[in-house]
Design a protein around this nucleic acid. Sequence first.
DNA 1: CTGAAAGCGCTAACAG
DNA 2: CTGTTAGCGCTTTCAG
Lengths: 348, 348
Amino acid sequence: MQEAAARGITIEDVAKAAAVSRQTVSRVINYSPRVSAEAKARVEQAIARLGYVPSLAARSMAGGGSRLLLAVFAAPAPGESPALPLDRLLLSGTSACSARGYRLLFEPIAPNASPAQAAAQLAATLGAVQPDGVILLPPLGKVADLREVLEKPRRIACETLRDNDDTRKNPGESAAQRLLALGHRQVGYITGPGDPERSRHWLAGYRRALAQNGSRAHRYFVADDQPDIPAVLDCAHSWLMPTIRPTAIITERADAALAVLHVAGALKLRIPRDLSLISLEDDPALTRSQPAIAALHDPAADRFAAACERLIAARTAAGGDAIGAEAPSAPTPDLIERASLTRAPRTI
Amino acid sequence: MQEAAARGITIEDVAKAAAVSRQTVSRVINYSPRVSAEAKARVEQAIARLGYVPSLAARSMAGGGSRLLLAVFAAPAPGESPALPLDRLLLSGTSACSARGYRLLFEPIAPNASPAQAAAQLAATLGAVQPDGVILLPPLGKVADLREVLEKPRRIACETLRDNDDTRKNPGESAAQRLLALGHRQVGYITGPGDPERSRHWLAGYRRALAQNGSRAHRYFVADDQPDIPAVLDCAHSWLMPTIRPTAIITERADAALAVLHVAGALKLRIPRDLSLISLEDDPALTRSQPAIAALHDPAADRFAAACERLIAARTAAGGDAIGAEAPSAPTPDLIERASLTRAPRTI
DNA sequence: CTGAAAGCGCTAACAG
DNA sequence: CTGTTAGCGCTTTCAG
């Protein structure tokens, strides 16, 4: 990377500098094993010296694959916030791709588009970009028209990131079960703003877990439809003020957990001794709070990165040439235990 | 768009179907004026019928421009949250680009990379992608090595999105001035977690505004270094409890504004009659709160989209061919007035 | 206004 | 193991 000059330097220049043919250079940059160690060394040196970088466009055109992945997502309606943690997906996906020499392109589907329109839009992008793989982000995995477009002209590798709920254990249920295992019976649940359907689903999981353990807290300590922080504060206060109160609270959102933490503090309740806390959404702020608050790990970003890796691996394998791709990183545990968690107190 | 089949259909197919040469088709899809209306119509019809979409790679290779824009940003260190509203940038940038047939690629620069390493990384990407333009997101605009890379081999059009602070009126100052204009003197300021340097800068603006108006509130009602919601709640409570209290509060973060709103409610203060509120960060939740909270509009996404548009327009103009690009959308006002704002009460 | 020719940088086939 | 020969689909340049 000495010269770092990238534009204008072609495979031809490298071939000349290394005194080999273009093909040999091509083989080297494509990790073909059929190159002598010596030639390979010369080529690699020339590449480094010249600062050669293969052109994506040329590779794509010559049939070597575009080395482009396309992530398709539903654009939020104006004024709405996206249903996906787009920033985290961008970060994890991009790094997964770039580690393997791939690039990731995000394609929004207009929020009000019909399935047919969405399919047409995707088809156009597919034709223009010719990605090596496509990831359908939720809830697009369910749209049949889109999947069809990926099969029709030429089958394109496709990964579908389903809603977490399809894969992950129901977060509400997981959290509740953990708390129940710690002996808690009076477990509260506070929903957050966001996709109401998701909330309903998670809440149902929580209710299920509690019911199975004979707790009735889910009849009393459930705050449904709590959009903002003021409401959460009110709710927490009304729950924690009386003598009969929850010994543990689950919140869907990180800021809600923080709010509960504050109310507890104001009421002289010690965390976790008097009250255990779990947030269903993780956030750096939960690490810094006093005490730190346990949270469920959202695997969306990890699974997205994994999907990218699979897509890339698929093409690499199909190409036949072996390239030492690092193993996908180990999965993170579901629940990140932090100081906000402890056994239920003896007295109810 | 009848067939929507995109792959495999080339300019050649269209030319045949329209009974013209490839060139004429090329001229049509590039909006060249030198085509007879009749030929143009035939071509356009053929394109629609066949579902033809020009290949980016081929266009790029033939020298027609890659129709790719590259947005370079500093990746946050692991565990940190990004300094930029990446999701909003992605949304606005992507839509600005796709409206003109362009695509946007995000390139993270490793957080611990030296300027030289960053430059090498950018050079590599430049060589591979050959974008028609590059946007350097803050704080990368200041890195000389990066700008140099964009000049050296072949000058690449570049827009630099500077920190808001460089362009926008200091948000802390703006908000304070608005409040002062409304007659407020006791104006409080609550920082939020995030870039401490930014906080310092905004806070300084607030202080300046107050000092120029002879208020001393900035000596008493400033909560610096308030990382989380619990702390904000404590702070708001301690300010609003006494008889001598601020008549207006500025918060850097939306959730902090919501927290203050709650505390005020608990203390039976009516908003905005007893307390005016401005958040320096806007958020949909501020619309839904009771009452809605005024906020400063963050122009980052708009300016990013505008930068993309400029880059595209530059290349289009250079190409010489006229394409009717819509005028960039009108700028949004700085301060979004909402119900949380009113004149200061007569009594101090 | 239209067409023909040439080539962008690379990789898939084939030979050697 | 290496080199040669063809294009990929499009745009440029140059002729009509």
